[in-house]
């Protein structure tokens, strides 16, 4: 009997050993790198900075959070960030649904995989390339301006709406994919049954399609919401003077690390709350 066979046999007889060999490395990664750094983030959020020396003072204090909620600028930026994330999510859902409906149910079956690949292709391109492409599109006299000119309009220019537009473009595939899958798995028999019982297409959509696709839509929204909430590069490049939480974290990191940590805690808490809300729709089981 070869060594390999004997080892395999020994492992077969000891399921616990097998499992621990399999999971040790990923569990260490999760515990040390992921949970560890999150813990450091939370703990340092309660430290302060000496205002003269810019040294971190490792003493327990809730000053940072107090400042966060009382300073109007911080409050504004937090609300704006959540607003942007929600706007991007809604826009993604509105654009993704008809698109996914076409790729999953209208297009000829042999074209469907190709269409899905086409939707995913932008994810293979570099994030920065795509954002700079949008910078070109939205710049003064750029593509957006040129296309809207015949209608007597001009592009949005750099600013909040440009940021929302670009983020919607960036995260759209994350919304299309789960909806596409859900629509593709929707049994055709249910649509037939609904029509058979007297429902017009609009009614079938509201009473059968939408409720059955909702968990997947919510799952997609978790991606678009959290990705938008954590983004700061897009805003820097095309947001004009607009600031989101990420930008505040970035600008505080050098001078006031504990404040940056406190700011960084905000999106974590918001995303956790969002996840809890989405769990009610059954989204987490359709991720």
């Amino acid at each position: 009997m070869s060594l390999l066979t004997r080892t395999a046999g020994a492992l077969h007889r000891r399921p616990r050993l097998r499992l621990s060999l399999l999971l040790t490395a990923p569990l260490l990664w999760l515990a040390v790198l992921y949970l560890g750094s999150l813990t450091v983030l939370f703990v340092s959020a309660f430290w302060t900075t000496d205002s003269f020396t810019s040294e971190v003072v490792k003493a327990w204090s809730t000053d940072n959070f107090h400042e966060l909620f009382t300073t109007p600028v911080y409050r504004q930026v937090i609300l704006r960030s959540i607003g942007v994330a929600l706007a991007v999510t809604v826009l993604c859902a509105v654009i993704a649904f008809p698109l996914a409906f076409y790729t999953a149910r209208v297009a000829r079956p042999r074209w469907r995989p190709l269409l899905v690949v086409a939707i995913l292709t932008p994810l293979w391109a570099s994030y920065l390339v795509k954002v700079y492409a949008w910078r070109l599109i939205l710049s003064q006299g750029g593509l957006a301006d040129w296309m809207l000119k015949p209608f007597g309009l001009s592009g949005p220019g750099f600013g909040l709406s440009a940021a929302v537009l670009t983020l919607t473009y960036l995260w759209l595939p994350y919304m299309v994919l789960p909806i596409h899958t859900a629509l593709e798995q929707l049994p055709a028999g249910l649509l037939d049954a609904s029509a058979d019982l007297g429902a017009r297409p609009g009614r079938t959509f509201r009473s059968v399609v939408l409720p059955m696709v909702l968990p997947s839509l919510a799952a997609g929204s978790i991606f678009t919401f959290s990705l938008s909430l954590g983004d700061y590069i897009t805003v820097q490049i095309i947001g004009g003077k607009t600031q989101l939480i990420g930008n505040l974290v970035y600008s505080n990191i050098e001078l006031n690390l504990p404040m940056a940590a406190a700011l960084g805690t905000v999106p974590v808490v918001v995303v956790v709350l969002y996840l809890l809300a989405m769990r009610r729709t059954g989204a987490l089981s359709s991720l």
Partner: peptide, 20 residues
């Protein structure tokens, strides 16, 4: 005419009950 315009109902082979 479309199915919803006909006074006919169907019992499907796989039942096609709405799971939600």
């Amino acid at each position: 005419l479309a199915p919803f315009e006909r006074d006919v109902h169907t019992v499907f082979q796989d039942y096609a009950l709405f799971p939600h």
